[in-house]
């Protein structure tokens, strides 16, 4: 990543709506060409950060730089970033082609040139055959791709995506995730992706910022966030974790402090061995590629995922947990 001129730099950015502080003194640097995700529950401030970068909101304090230029008080139309909206925000009274041409039209690009570029953008998202349709005649996934084409046709330095896959069904979503990733690689521009879906963030991102209460709880690569969550919030939000209170840790591992343990790090054994604990199966959830068990060890409930096996409620199993897999919080 070109450290010299990051695509986006936020310094001490604060934004309140009435008494609610949506973004609280945020510092953030996003590298050029990065696929950067902002992950967090609703109301955590991630969308507000996106809107601040786009220019739909102006910060109460702090500065925003795009490629080293201060844009803090510029209007959206003066910023070299484009947004893909959550519900697409397509212009219903225009055809697909007119939608995609819009950004070029307001830039006074001549007709032949803008049609050529718009068609090229539509080809990129594999919608060239739909150019003459109205948005209302398209499916959700197709509308999503029109919104993408409309944003990339003006060749922004940064593309902001506000939960762009939120309205799609699961199958389509997985397909669009792959397409987004390919598109980003192909265009080589910075993607800033807002989502509340941790799996999506893990799949797509180079780096992820986990938001909570208007601040970044943790910033890192997907691996760092998953393997080394720094707080209970991150451990619980990114993937699933067993969180052990100091008393529970003492009892189970003889260690003091609060720890997180991923369910897949717990081994379910065929028979007891030294150090293994016996546990009662409280709940069995079959999920196809894996099975989730809810176990009870001496009154402490533990989530476990195993790839195979036959389990039933009230069964007693042996488990083994390694203290080395614990992540201190």
């Amino acid at each position: 990543m070109a450290k010299a001129s990051p695509a986006i730099t936020l310094r001490g950015v604060t934004k309140s709506f009435g008494k609610t502080v949506a973004v609280n003194h945020l510092d953030l640097e996003i590298g050029s060409g990065e696929f950067f995700s902002m992950l967090g529950p609703s109301g955590s401030g991630k969308t507000t950060v996106l809107r601040l970068i786009a220019g739909f909101e102006l910060p109460d304090a702090g500065t925003i730089e795009l490629a080293g230029t201060d844009v803090t008080n510029l209007a959206p139309f003066d910023r070299d970033v484009n947004t893909v909206f959550q519900d697409y925000a397509l212009f219903g009274h225009m055809s697909v082609l007119e939608n995609v041409e819009y950004g070029l039209r307001v830039r006074k690009v001549n007709k032949a040139e803008r049609t050529k570029r718009a068609m090229h953008a539509l080809e990129t998202v594999r919608l060239a055959d739909f150019a003459d349709r109205k948005p209302s005649q398209l499916s959700g996934g197709q509308r999503q791709r029109v919104a993408l084409a409309r944003s990339i046709v003006v060749e922004p330095k940064v593309l902001l995506l506000d939960e762009p896959l939120g309205a799609l069904d699961m199958k389509l979503r997985e397909q669009m995730q792959i397409e987004l990733k390919q598109l980003q690689r192909q265009l080589g521009i910075t993607f800033i992706f807002v989502t509340h879906d941790q799996e999506e963030a893990l799949t797509l991102s180079d780096r992820i910022a986990v938001f909570n209460n208007g601040t970044i709880e943790q910033l890192g690569t997907p691996e760092e966030l998953y393997e080394k969550p720094k707080s209970e919030f991150v451990a619980g939000f990114v993937g699933t974790s067993n969180i052990f209170t100091p008393e529970q840790s003492k009892k189970l591992f003889g260690k003091s402090g609060k720890f997180a343990l991923r369910p897949e790090k717990v081994d379910v054994l065929a028979k007891a061995k030294s150090g293994s604990l016996s546990a009662k199966v409280e709940e069995v959830i079959y999920l196809g590629s894996y099975i989730r068990l809810l176990l009870d060890v001496d009154g402490i409930s533990i989530k476990v995922t195993v790839s195979e096996g036959v389990f039933h409620r009230d069964q007693t199993v042996q488990i083994n947990m390694s203290a080395a897999d614990l992540v201190a919080l």
């Binding site: 739909f56 209007a75 139309f77 909206f85 925000a89 212009f91 950004g103 307001v106 944003s151």
Partner: peptide, 13 residues
């Protein structure tokens, strides 16, 4: 509202 925002975002004054 997001149509107005989208338009502004795409460069329209």
């Amino acid at each position: 509202n997001n149509l107005l925002e989208a338009s502004s975002d795409l460069g329209a004054k």
